Simulated scan of single mutants.
Amino acid sequence: MSRPPETPERDERRAELLDAADRVVRREGPRASMNAIAAEAGITKPILYRHFGDKNGLYRALADRHSATLLDHIREALAAPLDRRERVENVIDTYLGAIESAPQVYRFLAHPDPAADSLSPAGPLAPTLRAIAAELSHAIAAQVDLGPESNLLAEAWGQAITGMVLASGDWWLENQPFPRERMVQTLADLLWGRLAAAADNPGATNGE
């Protein structure tokens, strides 16, 4: 469904509707419905569709809103003047802190309504995860010598680290087995053994 061209007034109204959607999602998580969001905004559902096209459009708009802030924080964590181990912990803590501070928003974006079947398998978070993986890959390539295939290996590691932290963060958020600080240490310990070995022995990527 196409939407009318954006204007300053329309942009402002769209932002107000996203604020209403945000409030409902923070209360209800993946169960948030277009009906509930329209009621929160004091409008009818067709007006909501007019602004976002369909529920997938609303998913993407909310994902864009939250992912922009998360990406900024990830970049800041990667750029912080810390040693390698502290930087690893800082990045993991930044991500876990983001999902812990807005758990229902995270669930809404990471585990969307199955009825929204036109979304990619990774859901609305997919572009954000690709961007995080790219940021990690660039940081690894710049800071650790991985030998002749450094860029390719850094890209593979960036993808692997992102997937690991996503899956383990999902488990941690749902089960809360221990405080965030301990989860950060646990994941950093797992990553640091391999990263430290590469940092201490440049080019040794095959276990030599």
Rank of each mutant, 00 (worst) to 15 (best):
L82P: 02
A20Y: 02
G97K: 01
M1K: 11
D64Y: 06
L125F: 12
A41K: 04
L129G: 08
A38V: 09
L173G: 07
P127Q: 15
R23D: 13
G53R: 04
N35V: 12
W157C: 01
G123I: 05
R130T: 03
L187I: 13
R50G: 04
R85Q: 11
A61K: 04
G29F: 00
Y95T: 03
A160D: 05
R10N: 03
V165S: 01
L78M: 10
D22A: 07
M164Y: 08
V105A: 05
A21E: 08
I43V: 14
E135M: 12
A80H: 07
W157P: 01
L62N: 06
H66Y: 06
V184G: 01
L17N: 07
G97T: 07
A122E: 14
P179R: 07
P202Q: 10
P30C: 15
R3N: 15
F178T: 12
E86N: 00
T205Y: 08
N175I: 08
I43T: 14
A167C: 07
L129H: 10
L129R: 12
G57S: 13
D145E: 11
E208S: 08
A188M: 05
L71T: 09
L70G: 05
N56A: 09
A36R: 14
L96W: 02
A36K: 11
A133E: 06
A160T: 06
T7F: 00
Q176G: 03
D72C: 04
A160N: 10
V105H: 02
R65V: 08
A41C: 09
L70N: 05
E208F: 03
K45M: 12
L190C: 07
A139Y: 00
I43R: 07
G158I: 02
A15P: 02
N175D: 15
R84E: 14
P124K: 14
E76R: 09
G123H: 11
R31M: 09
V184F: 03
H73I: 06
S150E: 13
P103I: 10
E155K: 05
L58E: 03
I37M: 15
L146Q: 04
E100H: 03
E86M: 00
P103C: 15
P8W: 11
K45Y: 10
A198T: 10
A63I: 05
D64K: 10
R14E: 14
A134V: 07
I161S: 01
Y59P: 00
D200V: 06
L152C: 09
A131E: 11
W192K: 12
P121E: 15
R107S: 08
T94S: 08
F178M: 15
P81W: 03
L187H: 12
E86H: 00
L119G: 04
Y95K: 03
G203N: 13
